[in-house]
Nucleic acid binder design. Structure first.
Lengths: 210, 210, 210, 210
DNA sequence: TCGTAAGCGAGACGGTACGTCGAGTCTTGCT
DNA sequence: AGCAAGACTCGACGTACCGTCTCGCTTACGA
């Protein structure tokens, strides 16, 4: 087939799928996630709220999980910020992110999906890339810092990201509201650990593999 | 005193509840959590597996959530270890804990329950104390270190605990298996952040509380 | 065995069964039959109403059917009346009986039990003798009339009884209230049929048996 | 008129209800009535036998009673017979009817429904018209006889019908098989009562209303 | 007089059916 | 074709009773 991947363009017969319906469904999904939570969410409810037939939903998503994943992936992620200074970047990114977390179903949906992952390989396949993508701004900020010499070249950026994000994630998961103002202390602590002693980057002794 | 404060309750009429059934239910619940996950768990399935009537379950737990919480809280938590050295304590505790995590439904159940918390205040009431209790060994290890002078007296132990546990939790939630051998690096990094700049215990310059 | 079949009297050890409980159970059964009907009657409900444990009921009756049969058989039946005149006997008996029917759950219970009979041989064994006994006053009144020469000697009394009782039974079953005043007409018609053509007792031309 | 009065209703959106399922449900209901009786009949069993979901049953009938009524009302009733002679009509009708009674769950179901009537007004509303309709052939035969002069014009046809049907009904209810050959005697007796003395129609002195 | 066997109210036990709800599929007529 | 609507089969929900089984107790008999 000559068809380009970007424009499958299936000129297709019949009536084209309604973009309107698509959006209405995703919106309704997010609304309901906020209102009734993940386990209380029903496809029937989504269809009703979106003013759409159930079949229209199943035509697009094979089950409610991918639907929720797609709705979820519409939520704002970490905002890419590049001020030239790592600490500033991190603090700004996490502050704006926390505001989002505190206002959207993110904190609710994420653990549910994570819990489902283990027993649902298909979900895992959809969900993992989304999660990976979401932390990229953080990863890139760390990589810029390495490039600038602020951090040691051999640094395990993934571990570093976890060290920064971990405390916040744990608190959020446990239902402890995290004030945006407290990110300063967290970032400071995490960076101190990452940087190694007294600010000298000491990649050689950086933590080993996963 | 003839009436003991601990069991003032009615010695109660009627047949007493069966301890045997109670245990069978919790065991079946854990087994099924491993096999089908939280959302795939049905009360009907638990009853069948436990060889018990559904009513016997509902007589004890109002819904599947508190049931899962109780089953969950039976899982081993952090083992209390006191070697006299903080690093050794932490590494030993986390290593043994990770082995448990990798062998039980812990990693599956926890996020599901956490996700439900937000929309279910009753669950929250049951679940939060359980979670709090579970990290106590970690908290106590930190407090012992403070008492020994290994850590600064003004340290925010909760934040410190999150810094240690966070990276592991994040990885587990994302389905990344964490090898027990990698805890050394994590603890090292976290402690470096907690201790202050150069590994010297220097509470005076330790970060302030949240 | 010396033991008499009628009073095996099991001298019995242990506490004797409570007559009080027995009566309370039967009373509660009748009350509930009136209130919720046969199919709505539950043993649990009877136990509660009677202030009795379920086991106390099952110790006496193997299931709710025999219980209902016994409660039912406590209801007043046809009153034995012997005025010396057949018509008078029948009218008086049926009138008093209809008053009972209109005031007790008889009209409700009887069809339910009858319906159960077909698929429940045990019930049948208990119920049939009760039903047979209940029509005896009617049968005896007819037999007295034969003895007096009022009716033909060869008369099929069972059929005759059905002819008299039938119309009333059918109306009651269909929920049509039968006024005691209308029994005169029914008896008159039935007897006219039974007696033969012209009201003269003429057994010779009476219809043969089934 | 474009909109027919009989089906003015919405041609309705959505998938229409399946006639196939409807029939399968009614058939299964009758089968099970024969096998396990009315009180042994469960909606679950009907659904299974009919190869249908329970919801499909509850979508059509609010409970098992109306379902049974509808199934019941499908059973053959009295066959309309008009030979020009009352006795012949009655005998033929009752004979054919008895054959049906002896071969279908009629004798079982009817008393159960009748017993339920008293405590269930909704059932009563459904059931009474059905019962009324079922005796119409008998009523009409009597009315034809009146028109022909065979019976007195003032005759209470309802009472007459009860007089004919009553004895049979009572026997059937009591589990006594009624042979089709015995209807001759019953009809003869009943008619003799109805006709009044020696065959002369004597409407003037016919029994009064209920 | 005292033990012991049975009865007692209470209520938990393993089950089965209830009537409801949602999942995911299928079938209408309309666009 | 896609669409909204809504019926379809299936299976879990949480409840109510079934008939059985402990409990701790009361009651009356017979040793």
């Amino acid at each position: 087939m000559s068809a380009n991947a970007n424009s499958p363009a299936a000129p297709s017969a019949g009536r084209p799928r309604s973009e309107e319906a698509h959006k209405a469904i995703l919106d309704a999904t997010l609304e309901l996630l906020v209102e009734v939570g993940f386990s209380g969410l029903t496809v029937e409810g989504v269809a009703q709220r979106a003013g759409v037939g159930k079949a229209t939903i199943y035509r697009r998503w094979p089950s409610k999980l991918p639907l929720v994943v797609e709705a979820f992936s519409q939520l704002p992620a970490l905002e890419e910020i590049d001020s030239g200074d790592l600490v500033e970047d991190l603090i700004a990114m996490l502050r704006s992110y926390l505001q989002i977390v505190n206002q959207t179903p993110l904190a609710t949906v994420l653990p549910s999906l994570a819990g489902e992952r283990a027993h649902n390989p298909e979900l895992s396949k959809l969900f993992d890339p989304v999660m990976k993508e979401r932390r990229q701004p953080l990863i890139r900020a760390l990589e810029r810092a390495i490039a600038r010499g602020e951090l040691a070249p051999g640094l395990d950026v993934d571990l570093a990201a976890d060290l920064i994000v971990g405390p916040i994630a744990v608190k959020v998961m446990n239902g402890i509201r995290v004030s945006p103002r407290s990110v300063g202390a967290i970032v400071e602590l995490a960076l101190r650990g990452i940087r190694g002693t007294d600010g000298r980057t000491d990649g050689a002794r950086a933590p080993g593999p996963t």
